[in-house]
Simulated assay, not measured.
Amino acid sequence: MSPQEHLALAERFIAALEAGDVEAVRDIYAPDARLWHNNDEIEQTVDQNLRVLAWLIRALPERRYRIVRREILADGFLQQHVLEGVLADGAAFAMPACVVVQARDGRIVRLDEYLDPAAGAPLAAQARRARIAAV
C-alpha cells in the first residue's frame, strides 16, 4: 500500500468510529485481524473488538477523536489521539491513546492500542452504574 492509501485508511477508520458505524469498522478490519490493548494484554478477534466498540458507542454516544499525531509507516500507521466525549452525567471525558496499525490490501490486519486505564475509569464507572440501575 502507498502512503496515501495508509492515510486514507486511517481517515476512513476514524470517521467510522466517530459515526458509530460498527459495520463500516468491520469492513475496515481484515476478517482475521487481531486487536490488542496494553491495559489487559488480550488479543481480540474482530467480533470481540466490535462488541466492545458497540458498548463504547452506547456509553459515549457523542464522541470524537482529536488527532494529535499521525505517522505513516511502511506497513500501516501510528496515531496518537484523544477520545473526547460527554458522559451520561454531563461530565466531559477525555482519554489519550496511541495505536500502531498494520495494514494489508486496504484493511487493518493488526491494531495495538496503548492507553492509560486511569483515564478510562470515569467511563468504566458509568458502565457499572448503568448495570446497577438496570437491575
Rank of each mutant, 00 (worst) to 15 (best):
R63L: 05
A118G: 15
R107P: 02
V101K: 00
P122H: 05
P61R: 06
R66S: 13
R63W: 04
Q79S: 08
V68P: 05
V100G: 03
A54L: 12
A121C: 11
I72C: 09
R131T: 14
P122Y: 02
R107V: 06
L78R: 14
F77W: 00
R107G: 01
V86L: 08
G76N: 03
I57Q: 10
L115I: 06
I57E: 04
R110W: 00
W55A: 15
A130T: 14
G106P: 00
G90F: 01
H81L: 12
L56T: 13
G90L: 01
F77G: 03
E84G: 02
E113K: 07
A118M: 11
E113Y: 04
E62H: 12
L73Q: 10
R129I: 12
R129C: 06
A127L: 10
I72R: 06
L60E: 04
D89N: 10
R110F: 10
I108K: 01
A59P: 06
R63Q: 07
L78K: 09
A54R: 13
A91S: 14
Y65S: 07
R128Y: 15
Q79F: 06
D75C: 11
G120T: 02
L115D: 04
C98F: 09
A103P: 03
A124G: 11
R66D: 09
A97D: 01
Q80A: 14
R69E: 15
F77N: 00
P117M: 13
R129S: 14
A125V: 14
P96K: 07
Q126W: 04
V109T: 04
M95F: 12
I108Q: 03
E84D: 05
R70A: 06
I67E: 09
A88D: 14
A91M: 06
A74V: 03
Y114F: 15
R66L: 13
V68C: 08
E113V: 07
R104C: 11
